[in-house]
Computed example of a mutant assay.
Amino acid sequence: MVRFGRKEVYLPNAVIALIKSEHLPATHAKFRVPLTFSKLDLRDYLFHAYGLRTDKIRSYVQQQRVQHDRPDATVPQQNKWFRPKAIKHMTVEMDKPFVWPEDPESWEPWSKEIYSQLQDDADGRDKPATKIKEAREEAQTLAKQARELLQGKKRWRPTPVDEVVEEVDRDVKI
């Protein structure tokens, strides 16, 4: 007999995601867990958090494909390889079946459109091509300002140190 509840979990500092899998039977559930999680950790977490007893747990680590350079690199480099962090999945066999609830007819209370738009914006900002474009635009602006200074169209005016000190003093509250 399996003894549940050996490791008490009060406030877990791990993110565990239940993944909807159409091909699994109702008595199975698939989770995405941290790489440091063991089968016993997941079993005790489910027991203490949800009162769920599990029979068998299968786990596998999914390696990610090797990519050219890091996705967060500002300037892409040739012949630099990067492998993203692996993902660990665990499939749990439960004694009672679990049925996913139906999707709501209206997603308005959850602001799904706004969330999707924010996700799309964030995905675009993280791409190296976007960062390169932003860096080029900034470089062009600086080059234009430098040309105007050299041609005498604009006059250089250094910022007085007193203004900077006053600005910093206003921000700091003791």
Results as ranks from 00 to 15, higher is better:
residue 43 R to D: 04
residue 53 R to I: 09
residue 136 R to S: 10
residue 30 K to V: 10
residue 78 Q to C: 07
residue 47 F to T: 08
residue 128 P to N: 08
residue 124 G to F: 13
residue 23 H to T: 09
residue 32 R to F: 08
residue 33 V to P: 00
residue 50 Y to K: 11
residue 110 W to T: 07
residue 157 R to K: 15
residue 155 R to M: 11
residue 121 D to P: 00
residue 99 V to I: 04
residue 119 Q to R: 15
residue 1 M to V: 10
residue 27 T to V: 11
residue 60 Y to L: 11
residue 38 S to M: 04
residue 2 V to F: 01
residue 52 L to Y: 07
residue 120 D to K: 14
residue 140 Q to E: 15
residue 53 R to E: 08
residue 148 E to I: 09
residue 160 P to H: 02
residue 95 D to P: 02
residue 118 L to M: 12
residue 109 P to I: 04
residue 89 H to Q: 10
residue 20 K to C: 13
residue 27 T to L: 05
residue 142 L to P: 05
residue 122 A to I: 12
residue 174 I to Y: 12
residue 112 K to L: 14
residue 143 A to V: 06
residue 149 L to K: 12
residue 37 F to W: 06
residue 167 E to P: 01
residue 117 Q to M: 14
residue 129 A to K: 03
residue 41 D to W: 03
residue 172 V to A: 00
residue 102 E to A: 14
residue 137 E to H: 09
residue 163 E to I: 07
residue 171 D to V: 13
residue 48 H to D: 06
residue 150 L to I: 15
residue 62 Q to G: 00
residue 67 Q to S: 06
residue 138 E to T: 13
residue 25 P to T: 12
residue 60 Y to M: 13
residue 9 V to N: 01
residue 6 R to P: 00
residue 147 R to Y: 11
residue 139 A to N: 09
residue 132 I to G: 03
residue 30 K to L: 12
residue 91 T to F: 01
residue 112 K to N: 13
residue 162 D to R: 08
residue 31 F to E: 01
residue 99 V to W: 06
residue 6 R to K: 14
residue 123 D to C: 06
residue 22 E to H: 03
residue 94 M to Y: 00
residue 94 M to R: 08
residue 132 I to N: 02
residue 98 F to N: 07
residue 43 R to K: 05
residue 71 P to K: 03
residue 172 V to D: 03
residue 165 V to N: 06
residue 161 V to E: 07
residue 78 Q to I: 11
residue 144 K to E: 11
residue 117 Q to G: 12
residue 76 P to N: 03
residue 44 D to H: 09
residue 55 D to V: 10
residue 2 V to K: 02
residue 13 N to L: 07
residue 74 T to W: 05
residue 49 A to E: 07
residue 157 R to H: 13
residue 12 P to W: 05
residue 162 D to L: 10
